[in-house]
Design a protein around this nucleic acid. Structure first.
Lengths: 246, 246
DNA sequence: CGCATTGTTGAGCCGCTTCAACTACTGTGG
DNA sequence: CCACAGTAGTTGAAGCGGCTCAACAATGCG
């Protein structure tokens, strides 16, 4: 298969979920960039290192600007609750409790952008529409997680789960400006298995079958989607459910 | 077992998730009730009737004030994506897309409160903190659905799923001011099964086993929780994950 | 180059599904 | 108020999908 450079790729701000909080504002016809000095850009988190732990106070909205993370259920190191790729917010549900709900661990050398809750509040006093942006952002997160849940819960066979997972990853990458048909998945088979509620061996076997059937070409962590339509069909959910899924 | 009145019970506004949008505001030391004439209270939806369909434009924030609903994956009448009980918001993720993501069907004669998105926007111009309330509300929803997903996805046995389901229902009822140990579940076994990814027969069998083991007493749609601690333990997740779960 | 980790493959077993028969409800009309 | 029909829930037997466990292969790292 074609080789893919594994060099860390940055998401563009234009394709980042959190850009509603960062991009300059138009105020009275003048562009106003309030974020300078407020947004902490590109903090490096090395592979296998934590960004935060469950129970940590939620102080900043954080977003993956490059790389990827897994969210792990505290106390069950084996139980993966989700993945976050470049351009995606991390654990936004934690705002409500004031504390993080999961451990976040970098799957590769990664970078995050962060903006403090206080800054958001401050800015919202100056820019009337700013909170509106945040509200839509939260609703977006809610939408995504609902989708995801619909895809992964319910009585679903191993094939359906993996097809849904791959199709979902493809769509997420596309949304954030990365190649949708050819990518590297930084997580281990174990992580995928845990996340999908399968055994590592089953993941391996199903992937091999997909490969054999010409749906994908996979070699280690590198994947090439050969027949996205058939994958979506295998996931057996309304097309509308996959279009904006993550 | 003790008989439980099946009369529809209203959630108190104090225990309703959406009250951040409805309860009077303190402005300049004076209580100001902006909602009069804005909030549509207690619209009746009869059993088995739809409140909305997937694809309908999202115009109002809706909340169950009495009764219960199921959210169904469009096109798959058998696939239940979630339940909403009295005091809970319905399909808040739809705000992002502007269209509803699921069909909502009443599981019994039910009532909903509704407040239009426009009203929310209007009010937010008058009350500075109003959008802040909405943001926290959205984060709360996000938190809940994340919890739920952690409980239901991953490799989980039928016993774990049902224990998590029952413990979760108990906590949700408690949060909204209803008896937590003795309640009526308005949905059919089929719905529970679909939601948990099990077969109807399995649900029946596991409930019978729980009954036999003294964890619950159940008769038809009526349930009495006898040993909530053991149920939570069976659900096998950190206590912190169940405390605020729904 | 050698060790450690990760991924693949195989055999046997267990839990859940499927399908079907049966029983218990619920509601409706006589 | 009872009889009956239709629906919902329970129970049993059989088959199979995916798990477990273990051996092996490949990959990555010092």
């Amino acid at each position: 298969m074609a080789t893919i450079k594994s060099d860390t790729n940055y998401v563009s701000c234009a394709a980042c979920e959190m850009n509603a909080l960062c991009l300059p504002f138009e105020v009275a016809g003048k562009s106003l960039d309030l974020i300078e000095g407020v947004l902490h850009r590109r903090k490096l988190i090395k592979k296998d290192e934590p960004l935060f732990f469950a129970g940590d106070t939620f102080e900043t909205f954080e977003c993956v600007s490059a790389g990827s993370f897994k969210l792990v259920v505290p106390g069950n190191p084996g139980r993966v609750a989700g993945f976050s790729y470049a351009g995606e917010m991390l654990d936004a549900g934690a705002m409500y409790t004031g504390r993080h709900c999961y451990d976040a661990v970098a799957l590769e050398n990664s970078y995050v952008c962060a903006i403090s809750q206080e800054s958001v509040e401050e800015i919202s006093h100056q820019i009337p529409d700013f909170q509106g942006r945040l509200i839509r952002l939260m609703s977006e997160q809610l939408f995504h997680v609902n989708r995801l849940m619909t895809l992964l819960t319910g009585r679903r066979k191993a094939d359906e789960r993996l097809a849904a997972f791959l199709a979902g990853v493809s769509i997420r990458f596309q949304e954030h400006g990365f190649p949708a048909k050819e990518f590297r998945l930084s997580m281990a088979r174990d992580d995928i298995a845990s996340y999908l509620g399968l055994a590592k061996g089953t993941v391996s076997r199903v992937l091999a079958r997909f490969h054999q059937q010409g749906l994908i070409v996979s070699s280690g962590k590198y994947f090439e989607i050969k027949d996205i339509e058939k994958l979506k069909k295998l996931a057996s959910l309304p097309v509308s459910f996959l279009q904006q899924m993550r």
